[in-house]
Amino acid sequence: MPTMIEIKDLHKSYQMGSNSLHVLKGINFKAEAGELVAIMGSSGSGKSTLLNILGMLDEANSGDYILDGVPIKNLNETKAAQYRNKFLGFVFQSFNLINYKTALENVALPLYYQKVGRKEREAKAMRYLEQVGLREWANHLPSELSGGQKQRVAIARAMASEPKVLLADEPTGALDSTTSYEVMELIQQINDQGNTILVVTHEEDIAHMCKRIIHLRDGVIVEDKKIKQKRASEYVQ
């Protein structure tokens, strides 16, 4: 399998007044295409920071980041936005849907920024909504959807731009366990289709539904192991 993500000696520190908070202290890892990786760690371990750097939402102080053979370095805002649009899909803990747009419009938005025509955009968005099982909810506003449905819309939106890597930051953090498993089932299905997915979580059961677990503590990787994946469908009645 080709290498999808490669990071070498990644450092990140935040300036808090006169103090400097060293969050990532030299991270090295590789992820191959089609992997489903859980990044675990207690709060403050740097897992979200790592994900933000991988998502080009934040910049590292030093180290290399190569995404599918493209070095991600010294990006200006415009370039970063284009890369994000082309390479990455995001799923956030708090869904981050645009509240005055319908489910369909939310899913179609990344395609709008890819300058895909309206008809094609809507057809494609509808296909992804169907994939997450929300075809009937296409014309509903986020406020009319349950938490699980919102997250599934967010996943559909992340997938709509056909990214190389899907980044999920605590995707089940705001959901009850049944809904969490449903969302994880969806993520596993998407992974089964060959998509590379990184999931940040602090829940053991969620992590075990991935294929590999990376443990972060105090800004370094303390454990990196492949596991036998537990299918979420086993938990869903």
């Binding site: 936005a81 994000r84 649009n85 981050n96 645009i98 938005l109 920024y113 731009s161």
Partner: peptide
């Protein structure tokens, strides 16, 4: 601001 953040995360450039 938040909406702008969302839009940027899914690929809106500052100019847009």
């Amino acid at each position: 601001t938040k909406e702008i953040g969302i839009r940027k995360a899914i690929g809106a450039t500052p100019k847009t």
